[in-house]
């Protein structure tokens, strides 16, 4: 199984543990990732807030590079995934848009390939059975809230792989890894994205609601598939909790990190030690990291 790989800007910076763990579990499960050479930013929300054509052209350049190799693209960042899909759909749906975008990017792009969320590649491409077979350190019934946020599952005609109101892909993955996916009502609620930076007062309220609902549902941690969600829930957790006079101490994970743990890799090698809310003590208390011997990984 071979995919073009589009990490996106965050995975080179604030979300480097997502990048690290995604590559590790892909290799472990026999998924070959061909990182798009010289990939460029997808433009994120800033581009489509400001310029519709630009917001399609920036992702299209990356899709075109992969198309030339005849490869579908695996995309860990939910925001990038959404932008890539939007470009793909616009070009596929209209010959005149295809011509315009090809002209803007200076490459022939026909949208014959597809962008796929890394979560989708793992759960539906590799398959839960195969993942289960490889689990050596099951998550010991750890109660986890699968948090999808918005851009991974909405709008459904673009994202396509799961239900927009009650998605289950990540919940099933958590179960396959030996954890317990809690049922909660905020799994697709928006974290506010970059509002946390530009309007911290508003962003922090949105973040708090998500954290609180996860905790009230009995979750011991939250699992994400998006660097922006992660940053908001992890880095701004103290700020959000403090604004309500609380302390939450709720570890946040990328789903690839939990896969890595269950497959036997060490937290440090997966990048878990770079979180603001340190998840390692909880994993230790629950004895998830204990034998059999942790797989060594020198990536």
């Amino acid at each position: 199984m071979k995919y073009a790989y589009y990490p996106g800007c965050s995975l080179e910076a604030t979300a480097k543990e997502y990048n690290q763990s995604a590559k590790m579990v892909a290799r472990h499960l026999g998924v070959e990732l061909w990182e798009i050479p010289d990939w460029s930013c997808c433009g994120a929300t800033a581009a489509h807030n400001n310029d519709h054509l630009l917001s399609l052209a920036l992702p299209a350049r990356n899709l075109a590079l992969a198309e030339a190799e005849g490869l579908d693209v695996a995309v860990p960042c939910a925001a990038c995934f959404n932008r890539l899909r939007a470009a793909e759909a616009a070009v596929r749906g209209s010959e005149s848009m295809r011509a315009t975008i090809s002209e803007i990017i200076g490459r022939d792009y026909r949208a014959t390939n597809k962008a796929r969320a890394f979560l989708d590649v793992m759960v539906n491409g590799v398959g839960l059975e195969k993942i289960k077979e490889q689990v050596v350190k099951p998550l010991a019934g750890l109660k986890l809230a699968a948090y999808y946020g918005c851009l991974l599952v909405r709008p459904p005609e673009l994202t396509a792989f799961d239900d927009p109101e009650d998605p289950m892909t990540m919940d099933h993955l958590i179960q396959a890894l030996g954890g317990e996916a809690v049922s909660w009502s905020y799994k697709t609620e928006c974290c506010g994205g970059s509002l946390a930076t530009a309007r911290t007062d508003i962003g922090v309220r949105m973040i708090y609601q998500i954290l609180r609902h996860a905790r009230d549902a009995g979750a011991e941690g939250i699992v994400t598939a998006c660097p922006l969600c992660f940053l908001n829930l992890d880095m701004r957790q103290n700020q959000a909790a403090a604004s309500h006079g609380e302390q939450l101490n709720l570890p946040i994970f990328y789903f690839t990190e939990l896969m890595g743990i269950a497959l036997g890799y060490a937290p440090k090698d997966l990048g878990l030690t770079t979180h603001f809310v340190n998840p390692v003590p909880m994993l230790e208390v629950r004895e998830i990291l204990r034998h059999p011997a942790t797989r060594r990984e020198t990536a």
Binding site: C9, E12, D38, W39, S40, C41, N50, D51, H52, L53, L54, L56, A57, L58, R61, T100, E103, I104, I105, G106
Partner: peptide, 24 residues
């Protein structure tokens, strides 16, 4: 900053998108 090799290509994308008036 991480800079890509082909910055010129991205600059061109911005310029051409702008020239097309941002895309009605």
């Amino acid at each position: 900053p991480a800079k890509i090799k082909n910055v010129a290509e991205v600059k061109n994308i911005f310029a051409r998108a702008r020239a097309k008036g941002g895309g009605r």
